[in-house]
Design a protein around this nucleic acid. Structure first.
Length: 564
RNA sequence: UGGGACGUCGUCAAGUGGCAAGACACUGGCUUUUGAUGCCAGCAUUCGGAGGUUCGAAUCCUCCCGUCCCAGCCA
């Protein structure tokens, strides 16, 4: 490693933003410093798209030995709440990042106000009394220039007087508006005399009733970046048109530095939606059980689903950073979590849909202990003994009455190996009056005990199982994609995205059973249920040693299921 | 119809004038007491299209086509 700027850079794929920073550093800009920020509005929960923004800004700060601030962009008290800010902090920390400074845009309200007076004194801002609807008419359209407001040539003295009276609360909401005086004919709509401060007689979660005028995003954002000494202000593509305005404020005001804004494309994921408004709708409509429902692409939902922060960061790294609109396949995310969990999770036995199996040639009260390692490739994870007895439970899907040759689990006339146990041979299927399968009768082959096989028998199928008497009851929730369509909110004309909700996105199994070792499972701990997938003990409803509740994070890859 | 941005494998994505990385997905095969994992192999004669410049173009130029974003006193 000869590059002095980088600590971990070689582990992170480069991208156009890092190339810009590299060349800025090479030119000696910003005294060789790199400062970024993550500026969420505390009006909702963070989702996987925000994870990308977080990883980019915090990741760059880490790799270039710079700083990254967390800043709550709280300029609209009508929508923001302190509880969201708390949730956001938790999510950022969960992802494994530490902010350098914690700020609120509202901390800068006084400075923002003072700079606005300078703008007025310069003749670069004016107080407008145009009602909202007329202002819209004056703005023009995408192809037609706008018209100047009648108040545009108000004197500096009058503007200053009005602005100060706006601040003191003399006027009701919507009566006056401070606007930048730029160009009503600009082809860039953002430059047609944009609003700087509006009147809102609303209590702010951070500043209380100190203010009744609040700055707009475009003004507050560039100025906050400047006040914090941000060097690279990284945001998503839809703000590209705002860059001209971002620069206009900084170019016209007497400021000590001029941060540069760069835009990257937002992340979209197949079979879900990433828009706070739509996610909120799912919560409000009761489609999901809350912002942290394991089906939600929110970070709190993914956490509850069992995604690890490492897997999310790996996913974001693999997705890359470009300016191209993109929609990533769910399979990439799933492969990241399988990789991570597969490496470190204990393998355990669990039965989601039980089917009783009686081993007819096994003594009534006999119990044998079968040693079973927790991980096939990591002996250091240890092992436990599984009880084997006359009455067993297997998964209903591991028996099929009319199975073809390709099906090599249990079937009439067939044999199967019980993992870490014996080979059993099918004898009889027992049904009730309605023809429902009640239980299976099988015999075991004493010569086939796992690790002590004297029979030389080879069977193709291996299934997981539990001894009925020792097993612990559990609830298992099986989650699947929230939407059946890959892009529920794109390309469906007038059809709302809610038309594509997957009715089977959540299945609850109340009669599930797990091996005794899971009695001690802590909330939030992950396991591989052998042959099924990765599951996590629910952080809300799972009670260690009392009530077991597991959520399916992701299935195991299953080539056989795909083919059939 | 104005402005901004973008078009490289099914999905992401390297590539910055010298002869198309990688990942996921997919398809074969080997190993396997998880139909898992692991391993091996295959998978863009072509970069939205058409011209042009050049010994040489995904990279430079011209025109065309397509997609996304912008008309909040939201961020």
């Amino acid at each position: 490693m000869t590059d002095s700027n980088a600590s971990d850079k070689e582990n992170t794929p480069s991208n156009f933003i890092r190339q810009i920073i590299d060349s800025d550093l090479a030119e000696g800009k910003n005294d060789g410093k790199v400062a970024t920020r993550f500026p969420p509005e505390p009006n909702g929960y963070l989702h996987i798209g925000h994870a990308k923004a977080i990883c980019i800004s915090f990741g760059i700060a880490e790799d270039y030995q710079g700083i990254c601030n967390l800043r709550f962009d709280d300029t609209n008290p009508a929508k923001e709440e302190a509880r969201y800010a708390e949730a956001i902090k938790k999510d950022v920390e969960w992802l494994g990042f530490e902010w350098d400074q914690l700020h609120h845009t509202s901390d800068y309200f006084q400075q923002l106000y003072d700079y606005a007076e300078i703008l007025i004194e310069q003749g670069n801002a004016y107080v407008d009394s145009l009602p909202a609807d007329q202002m819209r008419e004056h703005r023009g359209t995408l192809t037609e220039p706008g018209k100047n407001s009648p108040d545009r040539e108000r004197s500096v003295e009058e503007n200053l007087d009005l602005f100060r009276r706006m601040k003191t609360g003399e006027f009701p909401d919507g009566t006056y508006l401070l606007r930048a005086k730029i160009d009503m004919a600009s082809p860039n709509m953002n430059m047609r005399d944009p609003a700087i401060f509006r009147i809102k007689h609303i209590e702010h979660h951070n500043t209380g009733n100190d203010w009744c005028i609040y700055p707009m995003y475009d003004y507050a954002h560039c100025m906050s970046d400047m006040l914090e000494g941000i060097t690279h202000s990284l945001c998503t593509l839809e703000f590209a048109d705002h860059r001209a305005l971002y620069d206009w404020f900084l170019d016209n005001l007497p400021v000590p530095c001029h941060p540069r804004q760069y835009e990257f494309s937002r992340l979209s994921l197949e079979h879900t939606v990433t828009s706070k408004r739509k996610l909120n709708q799912l919560v409000v409509d009761g489609t999901v059980d809350g912002w942290d429902d394991p089906r939600m692409p929110t970070l709190s939902g993914m956490r509850r689903r069992g995604y690890s922060p490492e897997s999310v960061r790996e996913f974001i790294s693999k997705v890359g950073v470009t300016k191209k609109s993109n929609t990533v396949e769910m399979s990439l995310l799933e492969s990241c979590i399988r990789d991570d969990l597969g490496e470190r999770c204990a393998r355990v036995m669990a039965i989601v849909e039980p089917l009783k199996v009686i081993i007819t040639n096994y003594p009534e009260d006999k119990v044998e202990l079968m040693p079973a390692p927790y991980h096939p490739k990591k002996p250091e994870l240890g092992s436990r003994d599984l009880a084997f007895s006359r009455e067993l439970i297997i998964d209903a899907s591991d028996f099929k009455e009319d199975a073809n040759r390709k099906y090599f689990r249990l079937k009439p006339g067939g044999s199967v190996r019980l993992r870490y146990g014996y080979i059993i041979d099918f004898q009889e299927v027992i049904k009730d009056d309605q023809g429902n399968i009640i239980e299976l009768h099988c015999t075991y082959d004493p010569d086939t005990r796992s690790g002590h096989d004297k029979s030389g028998r080879k069977v193709k199928g291996v299934i997981h199982w539990l001894s009925a008497k020792q097993a612990k009851p559990a609830q298992v929730r099986v989650y699947d994609r929230l939407f059946s369509d890959a892009t529920p909110d794109v390309g469906h004309g007038d059809k709302p995205f809610t038309d594509f909700i997957n009715p089977e996105s959540k299945q609850v199994f109340d009669n599930a059973w797990v091996e005794p070792s899971l009695w001690d499972a802590e909330p939030g701990s992950s396991y591989q249920f052998e042959r099924q997938g990765y599951f996590v003990a629910d952080t809300v409803e799972h009670l260690t040693g009392e009530k077991l509740v597991f959520n399916r994070t992701v299935t195991l890859r299953d080539n056989w299921a795909k083919k059939s």
